[in-house]
């Protein structure tokens, strides 16, 4: 039972220091394992998507307390809490698998409203701004549209149709005289809801929602896209004195300007 400390006695002090050292040592070992687990847990598997408004994974793991209130308030049972050793996401954190149950993009975003910690950012008020991931047409060899057929299912189910996903007409090189309607995702509008992945008619989806960290790269800063970026790179060199109107300018339709040999289409005039 309690041996009262006779403070100052060197034996007690030595014993106390010994005990403390053992406790600290044990905690260091246990702490190392725990830290290892905590850092490992950041490796969210690609198919596990976080609910709308989830903070960046590293921040999310420091904020989400694994209460499951978001899970409970999702009317479509989209979300689940990860189970130890079964789902890859950090144990107890909410996730969904698009191919099983996609996010229906509720207008009132009940999952976010339910979150008591702000792990799901309450600043998200328009579900169209959610970025749970980005859909990628991952198998162009099996996608029916890519083969030149008209399936279009992923396109038609998209809640942000014509903005997040479009059908881009391409030449069908196989037949030589048909078109292909390529499902094409536009990251600036895709919410990552996974409706397209859920609905793909193939046995496994040819279009998949990937985490943004996998699906997107940063544009190289030193490339400028001349057709988007009208600002000249080096002002002094490019900003020549304007000589308008007259021959040699690029003002094609100004009287006196350069007239090409061919006829311009009416719309450009």
């Amino acid at each position: 039972m309690n041996v009262p400390f006779k403070s100052g006695s060197p034996i007690d002090r030595r014993r106390f220091l010994g005990d403390a050292a053992r406790a600290v040592g044990g905690c260091l070992v246990a702490g190392t394992f725990l830290a290892r687990m905590a850092t490992d847990a950041r490796a969210l598997p690609a198919q596990a998507l976080r609910p709308p408004g989830a903070l960046d994974e590293a921040e999310f793991l420091g904020a989400c307390i694994r209460c499951g209130l978001c899970v409970r308030d999702c009317p479509y049972d989209t979300l689940a809490l990860a189970e130890l050793g079964v789902d890859g996401a950090a144990t107890g954190t909410p996730f969904f698998t698009a191919r099983d149950v996609p996010c229906e993009m509720c207008e009132d975003i009940p999952c976010v409203a339910a979150c008591p910690t702000g792990a799901l950012d309450h600043g998200l008020t328009d579900i169209d701004d959610a970025r749970m991931g980005i859909a990628v047409l991952i198998d162009e060899e099996h996608c029916l549209n890519a083969l030149g057929l008209r399936c279009d299912v992923c396109y038609r189910v998209c809640p942000v149709i014509d903005k997040a996903i479009t059908l881009e007409v391409e030449h069908n090189a196989r037949s030589g005289h048909h078109a292909k309607f390529m499902p094409t995702v536009h990251a600036e509008a895709c919410t990552g809801c996974g409706k397209c992945e859920k609905s793909c008619v193939l046995p496994e989806s040819a279009i998949k929602v990937l985490p943004i960290r996998l699906a997107r790269v940063d544009a190289a800063e030193h490339y400028r896209l001349g057709w988007e970026d009208r600002q000249p790179l080096v002002d002094e060199l490019i900003d020549l004195p304007d000589r308008l109107p007259g021959p040699g300018t690029d003002n094609l339709v100004t009287p006196g300007g350069f007239e090409p040999a061919f006829k311009l289409p009416e719309a450009l005039k």
Binding site: C27, L28, A30, G31, L34, A35, M37, A38, T39, A41, R42, A58, E59, L61, G62, A63, C64, I65, R66, A90, T91, G92
Partner: peptide, 16 residues
Amino acid sequence: MVLAVSALTGSVAWEM
């Protein structure tokens, strides 16, 4: 230790 690991790893450590 749990609080220290939480601080070091930026995650809710004990819930692991």
